[in-house]
Simulated scan of single mutants.
Amino acid sequence: MRHANDPGTLDLITGKRLIGYARVSTDDQDLSQQRAELHAAGCTRIFAEKVSGTHSKRPELARMLDHLRPGDVVTVTRLDRLARNTRDLLDIAEQLQAKGAGLRSLAEPWADTTSPAGRMVLTVFAGIAEFERSLIVERTRNGREAAMKRGVRFGRRPTLTPAQIAHARRLIDAEGRTAKEVASLLGVHRATLYRALAKQACL
């Protein structure tokens, strides 16, 4: 096992320090294949972890990002080992760029930010991701406006209807029931009943 302060190996052609990152989704999966490919690519400092790509907290990824120095090249066997989706990939690429580090995928040669072509591809991806995001926002807004024109009301539905609130007040004021009893009868929490009664009193 390599020590945490292992500086990594410099690529003989580029002179850059190669840092590997490997990930599998579950504990019963094996990291050995990714490790072997990364070692063969020249990485002797490898950060590896067993965590689902959908999990927002990836401790070894965070450690790797903290470990990076300008000129380092983060190497992965495939991009889906590093990022959850296109947006996540672009966010990580931006973090690497801010540290002066590059990104390279063994399975996707076009994803090499140390080359002008690779940087251009990711720039195009960033534009597409932003375009998709703006389309989603526009469609959501248009759908909401159309629904409102049809009379659809948004927001949380009141837990108690006006008729239930009026009934609850009669039970409390006229019959002397406790708020706890009435709330239980209506199937809501006592605090919910208090809020409903207070809101109605303010109307």
Rank of each mutant, 00 (worst) to 15 (best):
G118N: 01
R81C: 08
F125S: 00
R169P: 09
E145F: 10
M1K: 14
I19Y: 00
D91I: 04
Q34K: 01
K180R: 11
A4F: 15
C202A: 11
L61H: 05
A4L: 14
T161R: 08
H39W: 11
Q34W: 02
R156L: 05
L185K: 10
T161N: 09
L106K: 01
L89Q: 01
P162L: 12
V124P: 01
D91Y: 03
G151H: 07
P70D: 09
G151M: 08
G187W: 09
D6I: 13
H55Y: 14
R177V: 10
V124G: 00
F125G: 01
R35P: 04
S56R: 15
I13N: 12
I92G: 03
V51R: 03
V73Y: 01
S105D: 03
I128M: 04
M120N: 05
R104P: 05
A93C: 07
V182I: 12
T114Y: 00
R190N: 15
E130I: 02
H189I: 15
Q200V: 14
A163W: 13
A201L: 10
G143Y: 05
I136G: 04
R87H: 07
H67T: 09
Q95R: 06
S56I: 09
R63W: 12
D72P: 01
V73Q: 03
P162R: 08
G8H: 02
T86N: 03
A117H: 11
R150L: 09
G176F: 09
I136F: 02
F125R: 00
N142F: 12
F154V: 10
E132I: 01
R84D: 06
S52R: 07
G187R: 06
A179C: 15
M1I: 14
D6N: 15
